[in-house]
């Protein structure tokens, strides 16, 4: 029973993938039906559907609050790939070393609440990997550090948001998480890819590379 909610070893992944695939697709179908989409069950359309569903979901939760004006992660302002004018904030007079330290720190962060998610994930200029994890999930404890390492290797081209599903149940429920670990990739507020269960370093690296479009 527990394993259903907690994807573990790779060897048994096939069975679990099927299971989580089924659950995930069911959730999506429900979400889509609610928003008036028809459902065609195929893997090809899955990605498209997930995109559309989440765009809709995201729009629904897109609210402008005073918190939106809060500064973005410091790292952004020094990221070479970033051209945004919306990222100012850090005084140029501060030393570069401090900024670099922050850069490393900000590559992955814990989501504090729904607004925080909005600012640091949905409105992020960079692609973000969202790691839905739980305290009680063994495989999450293996995947988390691996993913963190893979993200750090990209030198600020991608960030990683960690969401504890028990602290932020609504977020997990909203994004259709059924089993943990679930990792979704978000760019420009849209879900562009996802996986459930554990992956090794190489697989993670190629997943991350794909996200940043290498």
């Amino acid at each position: 029973m527990s394993m259903r909610w907690c994807s573990s070893t790779q060897t048994k992944n096939l069975e679990r993938w099927t299971l989580s695939w089924r659950t995930a697709s069911k959730v999506l179908r429900n979400a889509l039906l609610r928003t008036g989409f028809t459902w065609h069950f195929s893997k090809q359309s899955f990605l498209l559907s997930i995109l559309m569903a989440h765009r809709l979901l995201v729009r629904r939760f897109w609210t402008l609050s005073s918190k939106d004006l809060r500064c973005l992660p410091v790292s952004s302002s020094f990221s070479t790939s970033l051209q945004s004018s919306r990222v100012p904030v850090l005084s140029r007079s501060r030393s570069r070393s401090l900024a670099l330290a922050s850069l490393r720190q900000a590559a992955s962060f814990n989501i504090q609440d729904h607004d925080d998610f909005d600012v640091r994930v949905i409105k992020s200029e960079l692609p973000v990997l969202v790691d839905f994890h739980a305290q009680w999930c063994g495989p999450c404890k293996i995947l988390g550090p691996r993913l963190e390492k893979a993200v750090a290797k990209q030198n600020g081209k991608v960030t990683m948001a960690k969401v504890d599903i028990d602290d932020h149940t609504d977020l997990a429920i909203e994004y259709g998480v059924s089993a943990v670990p679930t990792v979704i990739a978000i760019r420009g507020g849209d879900v562009i890819d996802h996986f459930v269960g554990i992956k090794d370093d190489d697989e993670l690296e190629s997943f991350v590379s794909k996200i940043i479009g290498k």
Partner: peptide
């Protein structure tokens, strides 16, 4: 024991979502 219960709690939550 707590970890197993945590997974059950989550399972119930997901089941409610899936069943609308």
């Amino acid at each position: 024991v707590s970890n197993y219960i945590g997974s059950l709690n989550w399972g119930y939550r997901v089941a409610l979502r899936d069943k609308n």
